[in-house]
Design a protein around this nucleic acid. Structure first.
Length: 282
DNA sequence: ATAGGCGCCTGCTGGC
DNA sequence: TGCCAGCAGGCGCCTA
């Protein structure tokens, strides 16, 4: 579910609610997430204080005393929130971290359980895990030469390239479609056929879209909420994703839906032409 | 090496 | 009304 703007919103919400707080205890539902929770992690975390909350791609990193790194991924339906212990835990809450004396809790809820929580014992260990997964650079200030080179190196379609976390980290299905709409590029276009101008347009569209979405606290299509439990508002401003049959905001033609890279893909057949010749060069 | 498909889960919607 | 296929914001493993 959550892509970079949603994860960034969670991190910003959690930071003031978690910094300096002590983990008093950990409770688990016993159900398996993408990774099993280890009792050793419960023992290691108990009594530690939260020192930092950060984001890398779609990953949430909470840094604790002695450089422990508790790393979350929200998968498709994950929610990470701070709530008071009085508020009843919703179904599918799989991890509950009591904070300080237990009045507040950090809760990891995940209906589909595609998410994960993993404890690493140092920043270097996290770094190694990201390197092993070949996690790509953040989408802000992408190096132009790097970007052109990665596009030129593959004939996969643009949609697949944007979803590939080793090329750029943080873009998912919604923001891939929105970025391609903004860049006026067809999602099925082979990456290695882009002109320099088109590659640049896409490189600039990605952070523009993501920053606008962050400003609106992300998109709540179905169950996404931020770290305070509040929904996002960017779903109101989506121009392509989920707008099948509705008029394109630029030309009025109906937005179309197709399937690319195994994912539902939305685009304007008029503004996002497959062939490059009909594209105005900017 | 690269690219595509499937499985992992639960819940909701739309068509019959 | 009820049932069931299809779909959902992700990713990692397997195969060709």
């Amino acid at each position: 579910m959550p892509e970079l703007p949603e994860v960034e919103t969670v991190v910003r919400d959690l930071r003031p609610r978690l910094l300096g707080r002590r983990i008093a205890s950990v409770q688990t539902s016993g159900l398996k997430l993408r990774r099993d929770w280890s009792d050793a992690w419960t023992a290691a975390l108990t009594g530690r204080h939260v020192r930092e909350v950060r984001r890398r791609g779609k990953w949430i990193l909470t840094v604790l005393d002695t450089d422990l790194h508790l790393v979350f991924h929200l998968g498709m339906s994950g929610q990470l929130t701070v709530a008071t212990a009085q508020e009843p835990a919703q179904p599918h809450t799989h991890l509950t971290f009591a904070l300080d004396r237990g009045a507040d809790q950090l809760r990891f809820r995940d209906i589909r359980r595609f998410g994960s929580a993993t404890l690493y014992t140092s920043a270097a260990e996290v770094q190694r895990a990201f390197e092993e997964a070949n996690l790509g650079p953040e989408p802000f200030d992408l190096d132009p030469a790097y970007w052109r080179q990665r596009l030129a190196a593959t004939e996969r379609c643009l949609k697949a390239v944007l979803l590939d976390q080793t090329i750029v980290a943080g873009v998912g299905n919604i923001y891939a479609d929105e970025s391609l709409f903004t860049a006026r590029l067809h999602p099925g276009r082979a990456a290695n056929t882009l002109t320099a101008a088109e590659a640049r347009r896409l490189r600039e569209a990605i952070p523009a879209v993501l920053n606008r979405a962050i400003a609106k606290r992300g998109s709540s299509i179905r169950n996404y909420v931020g770290g305070s439990g509040r929904r996002g508002e960017y779903q109101e401003e989506l121009l392509a994703y989920g707008r099948t049959g509705r008029p394109c905001s630029r030309c009025g033609r109906a937005i179309e839906r197709t399937r690319l890279a195994g994912r539902s893909t939305h685009f304007c057949p008029h503004c996002q032409k497959e062939s490059r010749r009909s594209e105005p060069e900017v």
